[in-house]
């Protein structure tokens, strides 16, 4: 299967080059979507050998991903690996992730840090993530521990759907995307993967996170996520 790695990046000039190099070392092409960065993210990514898509303004991870998906579909790729630009996910684990994903046969495969065991997250956050995971798992009908993970594999035909429509707000690009995949009739599975703790700088503030969590719960309550296969 023709596979490409899509890396959404917003002001990650210190890590994006290394991410791209490790992707190349894994033998895969990299597309970095620069989400309106104000630093030299795009230049670093290009120097490291990535194809760079430049968003003229910052529109959020979901928008960056949709751009990457659309580009991948346009280039005839059948499978996209989504990786963060901050080295939270080690791109050298991509081949292992792809192999595990193949075994599941699912169109959306989520690399789960909790399924892998000892990933440390503070109490309240962990409890909320667990609650979200349980809610999503019940809706989707498949056991998912880590619904906010941004280390994923998306295959056709779901990829084409995501290229056309993908949620953009915080938690929308992770949690809602899983529900959207389910709505489109795609199967969702998870595989365990090791992750580095998130660098504190890029993490959102608590108040903001709480607000976004409320938004996602509201979206889940209001919208229908029933299966709607074409």
């Amino acid at each position: 299967m023709r596979t490409v790695v899509v890396v959404p990046a917003f002001n990650e000039q210190d890590s994006v080059g290394e991410v791209v190099k490790r992707i190349a070392a894994a033998g895969l092409p990299a597309v970095v979507v620069d989400d309106g960065s104000t630093d030299s993210t795009a230049v670093e990514a290009e120097t490291a050998g990535a194809r760079v898509l430049r968003l003229p303004v910052n529109i959020g991870v979901g928008g960056a991903l949709r751009t990457g998906f659309a580009y991948a579909v346009g280039k005839g790729f059948e499978r996209v690996v989504q990786v963060d630009a901050d080295l939270q996910h080690d791109p050298s684990l991509i081949p292992a992730l792809l192999e595990a994903a193949d075994h599941t046969g699912a169109e959306l495969v989520i690399g789960s840090r909790f399924a892998a065991g000892d990933y440390a997250v503070s109490g309240v956050r962990r409890a909320l993530m667990r609650m979200l995971a349980r809610l999503v798992s019940r809706t989707v009908g498949s056991e998912l521990d880590d619904v906010t993970s941004g280390f994923r594999v998306i295959s056709q035909p779901l990829l084409r759907r995501f290229a056309a429509d993908y949620p953009t707000e915080y938690l929308g690009d992770t949690v809602e995307a899983i529900l959207l995949a389910h709505k489109h009739g795609a199967t969702v599975a998870q595989v365990p993967v090791e992750m580095a703790p998130r660098s504190s700088g890029s993490s959102v503030s608590r108040v903001h996170a709480a607000g976004q969590l409320a938004r996602v719960l509201f979206a889940m309550a209001v919208r229908s996520w029933g299966r709607n296969p074409s």
């Binding site: 309106g36 898509l53 928008g63 659309a70 953009t168």
Partner: peptide
């Protein structure tokens, strides 16, 4: 609309 425009712009530039 801004989102759609930004994405379309990035893709057009890449193409």
């Amino acid at each position: 609309k801004v989102r759609d425009l930004a994405e379309a712009h990035a893709l057009a530039e890449a193409a």
